[in-house]
Simulated assay, not measured.
Amino acid sequence: MKLTAEMSLYPLQENYIPIIRTFIEDAAKKSGVTLVSNAMSTQVCGDWATVIELVDQCLRASTERFGKQVLVCKFIPGELEISE
């Protein structure tokens, strides 16, 4: 089953842009997903387990590297057409 996740990361520190970029770059390394970023969020679509694993791994790695942050994530069952 396919799953689409729309994610917005909010690092809890002043120099937040490099942290967000690193999060997106890490997410883009995951094979088997379609990823599109814009100014407000990053959308990821793929197999259910793969998307959940991506969210877990990317948030865990980002938190370990950069400290506290908030990830707002919407999960939409199914495959959506995501475009830039």
Rank of each mutant, 00 (worst) to 15 (best):
M1F: 00
K2G: 01
L3Y: 00
T4P: 10
A5H: 06
M7S: 08
M7Q: 05
M7P: 06
M7C: 14
S8F: 01
L9Q: 00
L9K: 03
P11K: 05
P11D: 02
L12I: 07
Q13P: 03
N15F: 09
Y16C: 14
I17H: 08
P18Y: 03
P18H: 08
P18F: 05
P18E: 11
I19E: 03
I19Y: 02
I19W: 01
I19V: 13
I19R: 08
I20E: 11
I20G: 09
I20L: 13
R21P: 00
R21Q: 09
R21M: 03
T22I: 02
T22W: 04
I24R: 06
E25Y: 03
E25H: 07
E25W: 02
D26P: 04
D26C: 08
A27V: 12
A28E: 14
K29I: 04
K29E: 10
K30T: 12
K30G: 01
K30I: 13
G32Q: 08
G32L: 07
T34G: 04
T34S: 03
T34L: 00
L35G: 07
V36G: 05
S37G: 14
S37N: 15
N38E: 09
N38G: 12
N38W: 03
A39H: 05
M40A: 06
S41C: 11
S41Q: 06
S41E: 05
T42P: 09
Q43P: 02
V44C: 13
V44W: 04
V44L: 13
C45E: 01
C45T: 13
C45V: 14
G46R: 05
G46H: 05
D47V: 02
D47R: 02
D47T: 00
W48K: 04
W48G: 01
A49L: 02
T50I: 12
T50E: 05
V51Y: 01
V51C: 10
V51T: 04
I52T: 03
E53Q: 10
E53L: 07
D56N: 12
Q57Y: 06
L59W: 01
L59C: 13
L59E: 09
R60L: 11
A61L: 14
A61V: 07
S62P: 02
S62I: 06
S62V: 04
S62M: 08
T63Q: 15
E64P: 08
E64V: 10
R65V: 05
F66W: 15
F66E: 14
K68A: 14
K68I: 03
K68S: 12
Q69G: 12
V70C: 15
V72Q: 12
K74F: 00
I76A: 11
P77F: 06
G78C: 10
E79D: 11
L80S: 13
L80M: 15
E81R: 11
E81C: 09
E81D: 10
I82S: 08
S83R: 09
S83T: 13
E84A: 15
E84H: 14
